[in-house]
Design a binder for these strands. Sequence first.
DNA 1: TCTGGGGTCCTAGGACCC
DNA 2: TCTGGGGTCCTAGGACCC
Length: 419
Amino acid sequence: MKIYALIDCNSFYASCEKVFRPDLKNRPVVVLSNNDGCIIARSAEAKALGVEMGGPYFKIKAELARKGVRVFSSNYELYGDMSARVMDILRGFSPDIEVYSIDEAFVGLDGTDDLDAEGRRIKRRIYTWTGLPVSVGIAETKTLAKIANRIAKKSPKAGGVLDLFKSRFREKALEATDIIDIWGVGRRLSKRLRNMGINSALDLSRANEQIIRKEFGVTLLRTVLELRGISCIPLDMAPPPKQGICFSRSFGRPVEELRELKEAVASYSARVAEKLRGQESVAGAIDIYITTNRFREEDPQYSAHLTRTFPVATSDTSEIIDYAASGLERIFRAGYRYKKAAVTATGVVPADSVQTNLFDTAMRGRNENAISVMDELNHRFGRDTVVPAATGLGAAWHMRREMKSPAYTTDWDELPRAI
DNA sequence: TCTGGGGTCCTAGGACCC
DNA sequence: TCTGGGGTCCTAGGACCC
């Protein structure tokens, strides 16, 4: 029988700031997003004062000051560092751990006798070693562990830890959980479910499987089964490298010039390339997105994106910047006040898989002649001088720019002429 | 003046092939 | 003439997560 514990740091960003400011103990604290745009974390004291999550800072700045709320700009380096410490401590309890987000992890506790006591040991050790308060929820599925965690966090009686594994309180817990608070049920789904008279987690756990499958798809069906204690979402201990790598930012002020946008897109592209190399991946394509400020309804609105595919998957900074820049030129329209730009690498695969893919592509082409010509070129000019592109129909031959006469052809039979 | 950033998964529909 | 089933691959868009 599987047992899952969900460990979740309370008000993570706000708690991280408090660790280094003992004078703020028991004081309300909030943390702001990039550009100090909106509130992304609130300490318990701030929540008690009614400070809303996601509220734009400029609208409530005066109110926060009046209430004595301390305000921090976000410091992601600090949060990443604190997160790593917490995850290391959890690894001391079980090797079965899925780091789910910066402030959450699922831990497998199979074979543990006293789950409640183990949960309290985890909570105590993290607090002693890092100063961060956490909540622990335990159950036989991840979805139920999420619910247990949520109740542990809110209920004063639970003291931050709730074990729902084979618990006689499970039905009560489901009944007390509103549909919108279930992991995997968002605004849209909850609306549709309410129309069917499904309002609580208990209602959803009793819903008809066929109807759920037909009307909502397999994702929600899995949620239903998980609520019944049937585990459908296993621990993901070694998440594969990211499939898409994105860098996106809002500008501090409206941007109208192509030149300025280009600078932004170039620096975002460089960051994406860095991230790619950091996880030893390459991208098959790059997507550029720009948009105006949707909150300024009086302004003309425009947003656009464009995907550019690389002949050969790459993590090369200048190549990525070039492609992004030319994509930007194509979607840029003058006369708009731009607010935000994003650069996303897609088709991301491990760098060392590319040669394998290329070989497969070559074999699919079944053109012995082309393959032997490629081999000969590579033998004469050095390894990887010529490679077949991984994407596109048929075979596309790409010759690296180190060669004096770079050639690019989409025809197998053309290759010999490239010599 | 001022409204975050970074992801995943699923499904539907079109292109293309035999 | 344009009719059929079965399959893959790709893309766009929706919904959700923290």
